[in-house]
Simulated assay, not measured.
Amino acid sequence: MKKFFSKTAVAVLALSTILAGCGGGQQETSGNGEQSGEAVDSLKIIAAHNQTSPDNPYQTGLLKFQEVAESESEGAIEVEVHAGTLGTEESELVERLKLGGADVVLVSPGFMTSAGIDEVDLFALPYLFESYEHWESVVDGEVGEELANIINEKSNNDFKVLGYWTAGVRHYYGKKPLESIDDLKGMTIRTQTSGVVADYWQQVGAIPTSVAWGELYQALQQNVVDSAENAYPYYIQQNHHRTPNGKYTTETGHDYTTRLLLISGDKFDSLTEDQKEIILAAADASVQAEREALYEQENEYKELALEEGAEINEIDRAPFIEIAAPLNEKAAQNMGIEELLQKINDLK
């Protein structure tokens, strides 16, 4: 499970940041940590994610990015990490990245489609991945590289991919357990309300409903929505399992999630070679740290949920997968990326 991004793979993805460079007088460190004697220009990086919990894997990843960038540059590069303080919605973070209010941000595929890059929805297709091993072989390999190139080209170099993080395996949780797929009929579920994800939930009989992440606890508590879907570390940290409409988790395992660590291609291209090397090293380390933290927390927070009264059950996923397969094929055809979908399936 622990097949992480190599520095070579990250470098191939050609990464970047909306960073402000000015003069500096620090000693440069090379990729192996040895001082080269050359000065690294000063740089301040604003790095942000949308989660407010300090124990979140996103925070672990960005703190590792900060640690490596500052250490490798001997302090010439300063990284300021924001946990939900620049926005709890990913659309806000994307907008800040475009306008220069943030330099490194983390977003999900769905919010990238709003920027006109529909192909990113490939990684959001339901039941696309069957395990973490499968997911890593895809994002760390040829498919991940090709999608990163698409993002860069279609954004006109506004966005480049620093690396692929995960937000865990998403499951259903709601006011009642799912014993069969029919139990979803007529149930409102907090999820994406457009695109492939929304189409899928509609096909299984649920009603996709939009609720901001920061408002979801109250929505579940006050019966605004019947259910939601997410991975253990995220909704357990937010105490959703303590609400009447979040008590029951059914392990649907419908999404081995992908998150994209982005920076500005134009600004990255303007950096010195020394700055670029350090940013790439920090990105590589952040990918490893975030994944490790997430993998550990999935089991940890599942056990915590059970201890605090949540009820968890498994379900036959075959009917769900049967509905997803043709939807995925149609979506890939509409996006013109049938070959990428086939490559993913071939890696199973």
Rank of each mutant, 00 (worst) to 15 (best):
M1D: 12
M1G: 08
K2M: 07
K7H: 13
V12A: 15
L15A: 13
S16V: 05
T17W: 10
T17Q: 09
L19V: 11
L19Q: 13
L19K: 12
A20E: 14
A20H: 13
G21L: 14
G25K: 12
Q27V: 12
E28A: 04
N32W: 05
G33R: 01
Q35S: 08
G37F: 11
V40Q: 08
D41N: 10
K44R: 11
I46D: 13
I46L: 12
A47I: 00
A48H: 06
H49F: 02
H49Q: 15
P54C: 09
D55R: 14
Y58I: 09
Q59C: 10
T60F: 13
V68S: 01
A69F: 07
E70F: 01
S73A: 07
E74Y: 11
G75K: 07
G75H: 08
V79W: 07
V79N: 10
V79C: 08
G84C: 10
E89S: 11
S91V: 11
E92Q: 09
V94Q: 10
V94Y: 08
E95C: 00
G101S: 10
G101D: 12
A102P: 10
L106W: 03
S108N: 13
S108A: 14
I117H: 04
E119I: 10
D121N: 09
L122W: 11
L122D: 05
L125G: 07
Y127I: 02
Y127F: 07
F129R: 07
W135F: 09
E142G: 05
E145R: 09
E146F: 00
L147E: 05
L147H: 07
D158L: 14
F159I: 02
F159Q: 04
F159C: 02
L162G: 11
G163L: 04
Y164G: 02
G168K: 04
K175D: 14
P177D: 02
E179T: 04
D182P: 09
D182W: 00
G186L: 05
G186S: 14
S194T: 00
V196C: 09
A198I: 08
Q202V: 10
V204N: 03
G205C: 08
P208R: 06
T209S: 06
E215N: 14
L216S: 03
Q218H: 10
L220D: 04
N223M: 04
V225G: 02
D226R: 06
S227F: 09
N230L: 14
P233N: 01
Q237S: 15
Q237D: 15
N239H: 10
K247L: 01
T249N: 07
T250C: 03
E251N: 03
E251S: 03
T252V: 01
T252P: 09
G253M: 13
H254L: 05
H254E: 04
R259M: 15
L260Q: 04
L261W: 05
L261A: 02
S264D: 11
T272R: 01
D274V: 13
I278Q: 02
I279F: 01
A285Y: 00
A285S: 06
A285P: 01
A285G: 05
Q288R: 06
R291M: 11
A293S: 11
Y301H: 03
K302T: 06
E303R: 13
L306G: 00
G309Y: 06
I312S: 02
E314F: 00
P319R: 03
I321T: 00
E322T: 03
E329W: 12
E329T: 15
K330F: 02
A331Q: 15
A332N: 03
M335D: 09
G336S: 04
G336F: 01
I337T: 00
E339C: 01
K343F: 07
